[in-house]
């Protein structure tokens, strides 16, 4: 236990080495940032239009003043909470490549979470793709992993450096396959020594 590796993701096994932990490229979060900036500026723009565009003074006392201030405050609260929720959703979508498996952790909303994992030795084919000017400029794209498992295709979506990720997956698969064949090989060899312990 004292030699176990510090846990970097939920469900990490003892002695399992994390090779790569990926999230979607930061550029995929830019729309959410732009949205919150626009939502923050909108009431200011509307107020400026009222004051300077049509020369209309909003009420500064009375019931409608109270309603206006409270609605504006609530508007900003909702806008920023929506942004925070988008961030949590982005941040908790993670792909983990270890020396034993690939884990896909996908957060959908607050109370919906899907975790898929795949034995790295079962990988059959890896494809990386980068589409369009933006993805090429910022070097991010998709990596598809074809497997022999029940879920036949794993996808890493909008991840940075997809070609390097694909290379790492292939390398991890090679290493895992060699490890598995070296575990299997000694059992196949007959020996003249005392018989091996039977399970």
């Amino acid at each position: 236990m004292s030699n176990s590796i510090p846990q970097q993701f939920p469900g990490q096994r003892n002695e399992e080495h994390v090779m790569l932990m990926l999230r979607r490229h930061w550029f995929s979060f830019v729309p959410a940032v732009c949205q919150v900036i626009a939502l923050n500026l909108l009431p200011i723009g509307v107020l400026a239009f009222f004051l300077y565009g049509i020369d209309w003074q909003p009420p500064t006392d009375g019931l409608w003043y109270v309603v206006g201030v409270l609605i504006t405050a609530l508007y900003y609260v909702v806008a920023w909470l929506a942004f925070y929720h988008s961030f949590v959703d982005y941040h908790l979508d993670v792909w983990v490549l270890t020396d034993e498996r690939i884990v896909n952790i996908e957060q959908k909303g607050l109370f919906d979470r899907t975790i898929s994992e795949l034995n790295i030795a079962k990988v059959q084919d890896v494809t990386s793709e980068v589409h369009g000017k933006i993805q090429t400029l910022f070097d991010y794209g998709n990596v598809y992993i074809q497997t022999a498992a029940e879920q036949q295709r794993f996808a890493f979506l909008q991840v940075p450096h997809p070609e390097e990720v694909a290379r790492l997956v292939v390398r991890a698969n090679d290493a895992a396959s060699k490890r598995e064949s070296s575990y299997a090989a000694p059992a196949a060899k007959p020996t003249s020594a005392a018989p091996a312990a039977v399970k």
């Binding site: 846990q7 970097q8 993701f9 609260v77 909470l81 941040h91 908790l92 993670v94 957060q107 607050l110």
Partner: peptide
């Protein structure tokens, strides 16, 4: 309600180790 929503989101960030 807003504070509860914020706390739920924060809880998820802490709970799932990221």
């Amino acid at each position: 309600v807003a504070v509860l929503f914020f706390v739920f989101n924060l809880y998820h960030l802490r709970r799932f180790g990221f």
